[in-house]
Computed example of a mutant assay.
Amino acid sequence: MSVVSLDSKSFGPALARPGILLIHWGASWCAPSRTFGPGFEQVARRHPDVTFAKVDVDAQPELVEVLGVQALPALMVFRDGFLLLNHVGALLAPMLEDLIRQARALDMDDVRRKVAEYRASKVRVRVGLHAE
Rank of each mutant, 00 (worst) to 15 (best):
P38T: 00
D109R: 15
V66W: 14
V66M: 15
S8I: 09
V88Q: 06
E97S: 07
R112F: 07
P94M: 01
V77F: 05
A131F: 10
S8H: 10
R113F: 12
W25F: 15
D80R: 08
V3E: 02
M108A: 02
D110F: 08
H130F: 12
L91D: 02
L83W: 02
L99A: 02
G68M: 01
E62M: 08
L85R: 13
C30T: 14
F52R: 01
P94A: 02
F11I: 11
I100L: 15
G81A: 04
G89E: 02
F36N: 00
A131C: 07
L91Q: 06
A14W: 03
R79C: 02
I100E: 05
K9G: 12
A31M: 09
A131V: 10
G26W: 00
Q102E: 08
Q102D: 09
V55E: 06
P61A: 05
R45G: 14
L15W: 12
C30M: 02
A93R: 07
P13A: 00
I20N: 05
R34K: 15
M108I: 05
F52L: 06
T51N: 10
D56M: 10
A120C: 07
I100S: 05
A131H: 14
L85C: 09
R113C: 07
A116N: 05
V88F: 11
G26L: 01
S5A: 14
P32W: 03
F78A: 00
Q60T: 02
S28M: 12
Y118G: 12
A103T: 07
H87R: 02
S28N: 13
S5W: 01
R101T: 13
L129G: 13
P38M: 00
R45A: 15
F40G: 03
V115W: 03
V3T: 12
Q42M: 04
I20C: 05
F36M: 13
A71D: 12
T51P: 06
R46C: 08
P18S: 12
D107A: 03
V77N: 01
E41V: 10
S33L: 01
L75E: 01
G89R: 08
A103N: 00
S10T: 15
L84S: 03
Q70E: 12
D80K: 08
A27D: 01
